[in-house]
Nucleic acid binder design. Structure first.
Lengths: 230, 230
DNA sequence: GAGAAGCAGATTGTCGACAATCTAACAAGG
DNA sequence: CCTTGTTAGATTGTCGACAATCTGCTTCTC
């Protein structure tokens, strides 16, 4: 018998597909913060009834990227400078924790996967595909959480990531120019391969602070002229 | 004009009420881990159609206390020893972070609220109301997170709390005898009022470890005879 | 008797229609 | 002119029915 691992087949419910579609639209900034999601209009565009759409929206509300007001509507969350600040400071704590947990679990497979994801970032950078660049950078960053072997931590990080991705996308979209991002991750990857855990933790902290300042400045600008929604 | 602050009126949708009902049933252990939730049966019992019920379930799935398999059903999550371990270790990290954040934000209102919640725990203990005892203890514990002024942290902690509450309820239910719980929180409260932040952080860690061992032992017992569901 | 094919029942997923609620424009009254 | 009451339209919340899928049993074949 051939030794073959089958991965689980895709969830083939409309709901799941709608969730994926909506999430992508939000995280790439196609749906702006504060914007209202009209159920009838969206369901007609997707050729789907409102039932699965509403269920999908309910999921995204719990995921924290939509917010719902009874009888008023469901909206893309508003991004405030404080939100970004809060998310980042928590993210730092989680990163430190993740590195501590996964440090002695590192093996060849980890290093290979690390390189693979690093390569994906570099590829996206070469392609000048900013959206994909954000996506791959976060995936690279997420590896430590996946490797930490703590399901609750991973889940928590993924929730945070959703929002971070949205913030970054907005940021990128705002300043039209393509980000250079030479290779900010080179040091990070090297440290994760090394033997100094403390150094890796310290770097994770500082590396994050890098883009953070820019992002915060952008967010503060946003707050002065709040979005109207559509 | 009289100076009066009105709090927002309650969300009066069936969905919201269903969510509250189901959550309570799960967190108090009335619905066992692994148990399947039959939509038709529950909707008839609640005198509600399946639409709002399904939306409510979708929320609880994202909240992490239900799990859903397409075309198979929605089930109360199974509790493994590792889950509890994971949740607790993350909880420790969050507690430390919260104490750091809220430490310089403490004021008289904080101390008053701290006393109020502490009193609620003691009251529940006197009443031998174990369910309420768990609830109030977690609320006492949650104050530092509410006071930390970091919305993402608070949200994260609340998600964790759901599960912790469920674990505790199961634990309590298993060993029939009422918990003594003299006053484990006395020291904790005192330290939060004091001037030694590090000491408070250290205690939060150790205090948690207390019940933790018992809970883990219980969970390991569970795993040897996995629940069937109903 | 063992195994495959197919059927029946139950359950979940989806749909279209109706009811409840909100918003905004307009009219009436002070 | 400002406030209050009314009404029409649009949107969300809920319902009952139908379609798709799964599960277990039965039946058929060998």
């Amino acid at each position: 018998m051939a030794k073959l691992d089958f991965s689980p087949i895709a969830d083939t419910t409309r709901r799941a597909e709608i969730v994926a579609l909506l999430r992508r639209a939000i995280l790439t900034g196609q749906l702006e913060p504060g914007q209202k999601l009209n159920e009838l209009r969206i369901s007609e565009q997707m050729r789907v009834s409102r039932a699965p759409l509403r269920e999908a929206m309910r999921e995204l509300v719990q995921e924290g990227i939509l917010t719902s007001i009874p009888y008023a509507g469901t909206f893309v969350i508003d991004v405030t400078a404080k939100d970004i600040d809060d998310a980042y400071s928590l993210n730092k704590v989680l990163d430190e924790f993740a590195i501590e947990l996964m440090w002695k679990l590192r093996d060849q497979r980890f290093f290979d996967e690390l390189d693979r994801r690093h390569e994906a970032v570099k590829q996206a950078t070469r392609d000048r595909d900013t959206t994909r660049q954000i996506e791959t950078a976060l995936q690279l960053h997420g590896l430590i959480h996946e490797w930490a072997d703590n399901s609750v931590l991973l889940e928590t990080w993924q929730r945070l990531t959703s929002r971070l991705q949205m913030y970054f996308a907005l940021h990128q979209q705002a300043r039209k120019e393509v980000v250079p991002a030479e290779d900010v991750h080179e040091t990070y990857v090297a440290l994760l391969k090394g033997n100094d855990m403390r150094a890796a933790q310290r770097h994770a902290r500082e590396h994050i602070d890098l883009d953070f300042e820019e992002l915060l400045a952008y967010a503060r600008g946003l707050e002065r002229r709040p979005s109207k929604g559509a």
